[in-house]
Design a protein around this nucleic acid. Structure first.
Length: 334
DNA sequence: CGTGTTTGACCAGCGC
DNA sequence: GCGCTGGTCAAACACG
C-alpha cells in the first residue's frame, strides 16, 4: 500500500493485484422495477473486515466460499438465496458504513480467493434483481415527460436537466469495492467527472463520472469507505454501448473491459463490467459448474447479444484469456 | 484548442 | 412544510 498512487493509476487493475493492492469486493446491483430511484445500489460494505474474514457473523458465508469458487457458489451469491440474505441482512444492523440516507443495498453474496494473482482477492457480490422495466414511479421521469412538450422554461438549467432526465432509463447498477489508494480506478473506459459531493458521515467525497463516449450513458460513482479508507467503492450504472477505447495500452484491460465480455451462463454481470471485476469473475464464470439450484436467480441469464457471443467465441477459441491470465483456471472444456 | 476537472448552485425526493 | 441529502448542471479553470 505504500506504492505511489500515480503510478498505480497508470496501470491496469490487474496490476493492482500484482502489486498487492487490488483486493476487491464486488456488489452487483441490477435495479428492479420496485427499486426506488434513490435506493442506491451502492454497496453496503460489511467493511473490509468482513471481507477479510475478521467478522465472525460473516465467516460462515466466507468460509463457504473460501477456497472454492464453485460456480454454484456464485449462483448462490447471485441468486438471492435465503442464506445469503440472512447473512447480509445482519450487516444492516451492524454496519451502516455506506448506507445512504435513501436506502441501501445489502450484499448478498461473497466469494473469495479467486486465483487471479498471487494475492488473494476477496470479493463480495450483491445484486438487486430485475431491471426490466422502469418503474413509472420515477418521479423524475414522469415529471420530465410532463414538461417535455410545452416548455419554454426560462430556467435553462432546469430545461437541460429535464432533457437529460428524460433520456434517463432504468439502468442496471453494480458496485464493487477495491482496496486501493487510487480513487478512480482505471477500467478501460474514458470517464469525465461531472460532480463531487460530500458524503454524509464520511470525510471522503463522492465523485461522479460519466462515460465520455457519445451516446453512452454509463455513469459511475466513486467514493472511499470512511471506515476503511483504503477501500474504494465504485458503483457503475448503465451499460456501455460501445467498445472500449482502443487507446488502452493494448493490454488485457482493454479487452476485458469490453462491455460484452462479461456474460456468463448464470450470473452475468451487466455489460460494461469493469475488467477489474472481470478478472475475478472470469474463472468462475467460465466454469461450467452451474448448479441447477438458483433458477430463480433474478440476476441471471441475460441472453447474449450477438456481439457477446462473438466475443465469447473468440475467447474460447483462441484462449485469449488464458494467454492473458495464465494463472486463471479455465474449465471451459471437459 | 480540445479535453477533463473543480466547484457552487440548483433540483427532486425523502423523512420528520 | 421544511430541512437534509443525493444527483446533476455548467461556468470557470487547468492542462497537454
Amino acid at each position: 500500500m505504500s506504492s505511489e498512487p500515480k503510478d498505480l493509476y497508470n496501470h491496469d487493475p490487474f496490476q493492482y493485484d500484482r502489486y498487492g493492492l487490488g483486493t476487491t469486493s464486488f456488489s452487483f446491483s441490477s435495479n428492479t422495477s420496485s427499486i426506488d430511484e434513490h435506493k442506491s445500489p451502492l454497496v453496503v460494505d460489511p467493511s473490509s473486515q468482513t471481507l477479510h474474514g475478521l467478522s465472525p457473523p460473516y465467516m460462515s458465508f466466507t468460509e463457504c466460499l473460501h477456497g472454492s469458487v464453485e460456480y454454484n457458489t456464485l449462483a448462490t451469491a447471485f441468486g438471492l438465496s435465503p442464506s445469503s440474505s440472512e447473512v447480509f441482512s445482519s450487516l444492516e444492523g451492524d454496519n451502516k458504513t455506506l448506507e445512504t440516507t435513501r436506502g441501501h443495498v445489502p450484499i448478498i453474496g461473497t466469494t473469495t480467493e479467486v486465483p487471479v494473482s498471487t494475492n488473494s482477492s476477496e470479493s463480495s457480490f450483491s445484486t438487486e434483481a430485475g431491471n426490466e422495466e422502469y418503474s413509472s414511479s420515477s418521479k423524475k421521469e414522469s415529471e420530465t415527460k410532463g414538461c417535455e412538450d410545452g416548455d419554454e422554461n426560462p430556467n435553462k438549467k432546469v430545461n437541460k436537466q429535464k432533457k437529460k432526465v428524460d433520456k434517463r432509463q432504468r439502468e442496471p447498477r453494480f458496485a464493487f469495492m477495491t482496496k486501493s489508494e487510487v480513487d478512480h480506478l482505471e477500467d478501460g473506459y474514458r470517464w469525465r467527472k461531472y460532480g463531487q459531493k460530500a458524503v454524509k458521515n464520511s470525510p471522503f467525497p463522492r465523485s461522479y463520472y460519466r462515460c465520455t463516449t457519445q451516446k453512452c450513458t454509463v455513469k459511475k460513482r466513486v467514493e472511499r469507505s470512511f471506515q476503511d479508507p483504503s477501500t474504494v467503492i465504485t458503483t457503475y450504472e448503465g451499460q456501455h454501448n460501445h467498445p472500449v477505447p482502443v487507446t488502452l495500452r493494448g493490454n488485457a484491460t482493454a479487452m476485458l473491459s469490453h462491455p460484452m465480455l462479461a456474460p456468463t451462463p448464470l450470473a452475468a454481470p451487466p455489460p460494461g463490467f469493469p475488467p477489474e471485476l472481470l478478472a475475478h469473475m472470469m474463472p468462475p464464470m467460465n466454469t461450467q459448474h452451474v448448479s441447477g439450484g438458483t433458477s430463480s436467480n433474478s440476476f441471471a441469464p441475460q441472453p447474449m447479444t450477438h456481439f457477446q457471443q462473438q466475443q465469447q467465441h473468440l475467447l474460447n477459441d483462441h484462449g485469449l484469456l488464458q494467454d492473458l491470465f495464465p494463472s486463471l483456471i479455465f474449465k471451459q472444456e471437459p
